[in-house]
């Protein structure tokens, strides 16, 4: 898989796909998209990088512990859900706030978005943790 064509295309794809996955993530709470879709897209492009450049080479400059990403996402998602309890509401109750920022115009801040970010990290962490461990056979 290490032809010059795939390498070049992968290099172009990585930033584009990651940006697109983030835009899907942020659109998620009331438009098509969401943490799961965004996470899968992010994981797929990292997986493509692993396949094209080889796991050993990629590990020399980019070697995060994906299990930590998973843990971070799950903590964030569950804490978001717990947060509603401290405001006297039931678990998972979401809150919406509209904010005016000078350059961006009106921005919708939703607590469900925070939960989505948690899901995003859980999906990335779990998929890539499995992918990396299955591919990594020397250990």
């Amino acid at each position: 898989m290490t032809t010059i064509i795939t390498k070049t295309i992968t290099k172009v794809c990585i930033p584009l796909v990651i940006l697109f996955s983030i835009s899907l993530l942020l659109a998620g709470h009331n438009n098509p998209g969401g943490g799961f879709i965004g996470g899968v897209m992010f994981a797929s492009v990292i997986a493509l990088m692993y396949v094209v450049f080889g796991l050993k080479y990629v590990k020399t400059f980019f070697n995060p512990d994906w299990a930590k990403w998973f843990g971070f996402g799950l903590t964030l998602a569950s804490l978001t859900a717990f947060a509603a309890m401290f405001f006297g509401h039931n678990f998972f109750r979401s809150a919406v706030e509209f904010v005016h920022l000078p350059l961006f115009g009106e921005i919708e801040l939703v607590s469900a978005g925070l939960f989505d970010i948690g899901v995003y990290f859980v999906v990335i962490g779990s998929l890539l943790f499995i992918f990396k461990n299955v591919g990594d056979d020397n250990e």
Partner: peptide, 26 residues
């Protein structure tokens, strides 16, 4: 009393939160 009404979800959600924390404490 208000906290006690949350018991059903606490029994489900706290173990999930713990599962996440346990990953950091490996």
């Amino acid at each position: 009393i208000a906290e006690m009404s949350h018991l059903p979800i606490i029994l489900i959600a706290v173990p999930i939160l713990m599962a996440a924390l346990m990953l950091f404490l490996r």
